[in-house]
């Protein structure tokens, strides 16, 4: 069983996202600590990419701030290695195919194993292209997380049957970012996933309020909140970690 399962053993899982190096790695470390201490069950660490095509304006901004600060993939591996000495919850990387491809998938996944990364999310790698990275993920025991979208329909069974770690259910059409309403029939998507796998399902994209999170957690095994947390970094910069801690506490309590 993968380490990621632990995230789903403490009630409904609260998963959050931070871009490494936004605005610097010290702040990211403090934000990870604050999130973990206040109930985050799993943290997605974004490795910034110059052209994050699946992201809305908030996370695009985080990528830009991180790259402007000069953070590199090598520095992020060193950073996670240090962080792992104190953080025990599952950690996964979220980045784009070219970041892994240019580093060399074997070298990248080997480094993930060495520093204690449990999973990898690549939003621009669908089922059809996963063989590019999957053999290296398997070799080094890193789960390649699959995404399911509101448009997946007939593809759900195929994706779910081969999924690892957890299923990332994309709540809405479009890119990442906070939304007022989520209208997708998520219950039937989760049901279709569960017919094909025992892995947990977490819903992400567009979730920011405790009420939304509660509603999503009633449907799935966990919720993923990205932009709302990154927004706190946008607003408070290096002072954001305490705000993030407070926010995570409220959200985790809401999904109870």
């Amino acid at each position: 069983m993968s380490n990621i399962q632990k995230a789903f053993e403490n009630g409904k899982a609260f998963i959050t996202f931070l871009t490494c190096g936004d605005p610097d790695l010290q702040t990211t470390a403090a934000a990870v600590r604050a999130a973990a201490e206040n109930g985050a069950d799993l943290i997605e660490l974004g490795i910034p990419f110059s052209d994050p095509t699946a992201e809305g304006p908030v996370i695009q901004g985080a990528n830009l701030r991180a790259l402007s600060g000069g953070v590199t993939t090598d520095e992020i591996f060193d950073f996670v290695e240090q962080l792992r000495k104190e953080i025990t919850i599952p950690l996964v990387f979220m980045t784009y195919a070219n970041v892994v491809f240019s580093y060399g998938p074997d070298r990248f996944l080997s480094a993930c194993q060495k520093v204690g990364i449990d999973g990898l999310i690549l939003p621009d790698v669908p089922y059809e292209e996963k063989e590019e990275f999957l053999p290296f993920c398997r070799k080094y025991g890193v789960d390649l997380i699959s995404l399911i979208a509101p448009t997946s329909q007939n593809r759900i069974a195929m994706i779910a049957k081969e999924a690892e770690g957890f299923l990332y259910i994309v709540s809405s059409l479009g890119v990442t970012g906070m939304r007022g309403e989520i209208e997708t029939d998520l219950a039937s998507i989760v049901e279709a996933v569960r017919q094909n796998t025992d892995l947990p399902c977490a819903i992400g994209f567009g979730i920011s309020s405790p009420e939304q999170a509660k509603k999503m957690a009633d449907t799935a095994d966990g919720v993923i909140v990205g932009s709302a947390v990154v927004k706190l970094l946008e607003e408070h910069g290096k002072d954001a970690p305490s705000y993030i801690g407070e926010y995570v506490k409220v959200m985790k309590k809401a999904i109870g």
Binding site: A54, E128, E129, T151, S152, R155, V170, G174
Partner: peptide
């Protein structure tokens, strides 16, 4: 059939767009 020209090409896009392509 997979949209490859030698090693090039492919479909590296979000799952949301897969049924559209």
């Amino acid at each position: 059939p997979n949209g490859r020209f030698g090693i090039h090409g492919g479909q590296y896009i979000p799952e949301t767009l897969m049924n559209a392509v």
